[in-house]
């Protein structure tokens, strides 16, 4: 993993959570801003996964447990997609909370992924 990129993705995830929860507080349902933020986050997560797959071949192997890391990476990619489907089943303010919670979870997972990648000897 590349730390600065991870930080960028975490910031985007936190901003996406803020946007979604902000709309939720304003009693608004899901809209293009929220879905756009989640879509951007998803793109970055896919980029992150590609980086993680390529990194060991260019001299940046994980020192932690690669299986654990892979599980997190896969879950992180699935969560925004599932959250959007789940949120749009019923369009009310709680949909916005669902999207916000998902984005928040992604931020926490990315931080864990960075720790797992860099931990000394798993």
């Amino acid at each position: 993993m590349i730390l600065p990129f991870t930080i960028v993705v975490i910031v985007v995830a936190l901003l996406a959570a803020l946007v979604c929860l902000g709309f939720a507080i304003a009693k608004r349902g899901p809209n293009d801003y929220q879905l756009g933020a989640l879509a951007l986050l998803e793109l970055l997560l896919i980029a992150q996964a590609v980086i993680a797959i390529v990194a060991p071949f260019v001299g940046n192997p994980p020192t932690g447990n690669p299986v654990e890391f892979g599980a997190y990476a896969l879950a992180a990619i699935l969560i925004p997609v599932l959250a959007v489907f789940w949120a749009l089943r019923e369009r009310d303010r709680w949909s916005s909370v669902v999207l916000g919670v998902a984005a928040l979870a992604i931020a926490v997972m990315l931080w864990r992924m960075q720790l797992i990648w860099t931990v000394q000897a798993g």
Binding site: A71, A87, V98
Partner: peptide, 29 residues
């Protein structure tokens, strides 16, 4: 699974994924 109940479902789902991943890793490794 309606209204705020959907938020509960999503938090449960994320925790389920997290707990499953962690326990599988612990048990397998």
């Amino acid at each position: 699974a309606t209204g705020v109940g959907r938020v509960l479902v999503v938090v449960y789902a994320i925790l389920a994924i997290g707990a499953t991943g962690r326990s599988l890793t612990q048990i397998l490794t």
